[in-house]
Simulated assay, not measured.
Amino acid sequence: MGWGFRKSVKMGPFRLNLSRSGVGHSWGNRAFRVTKTADGRRTLSVNLPGGFHWRKTLSGSRR
């Protein structure tokens, strides 16, 4: 198992995600978020109270 790096910088509803694999960004709030990862995937996330969540990959490659 190797070492990893991850840092997130918030600027209002926008978040810049820095990791060993590159730079990604996301936009939204706790309940609804759209993310573009460093490897090019776009993900839509919906989080509901009580721990329920739904996540869908919109485009890009899945691992």
Rank of each mutant, 00 (worst) to 15 (best):
G40L: 11
V46K: 02
W27Y: 14
G40H: 13
G51W: 04
T35P: 09
G50P: 05
F14Y: 08
W3H: 06
R62Q: 14
H25Q: 01
A38H: 09
R55Q: 15
V9D: 12
V34R: 04
L44S: 09
G60Q: 01
F5A: 07
A31C: 08
D39H: 13
G12Q: 10
K7E: 09
P13W: 05
G40Q: 13
F5N: 03
L58M: 15
F32W: 07
L48I: 03
S19H: 06
R41Y: 02
F5E: 09
G51R: 09
V34Y: 06
R33Q: 15
G51T: 08
G24I: 01
G22V: 03
H25P: 00
K10S: 11
S21I: 00
R63L: 10
L44N: 11
R6T: 02
R63D: 10
L48E: 14
G50M: 12
S59G: 11
G60D: 04
G12H: 07
K7G: 13
R41K: 13
V9M: 02
L16T: 14
R30M: 05
S59A: 11
P49D: 15
G4T: 06
G12K: 13
S59W: 00
T35F: 01
F32T: 10
R55T: 06
L48C: 10
G28A: 07
P13K: 13
V46R: 07
G51M: 05
L18E: 11
M11F: 04
G60M: 03
R6Y: 06
G60W: 07
N29C: 06
T43P: 03
N29K: 04
S8N: 08
S61C: 10
M1T: 15
M11W: 00
A38Q: 13
G50N: 06
G22M: 10
S19N: 14
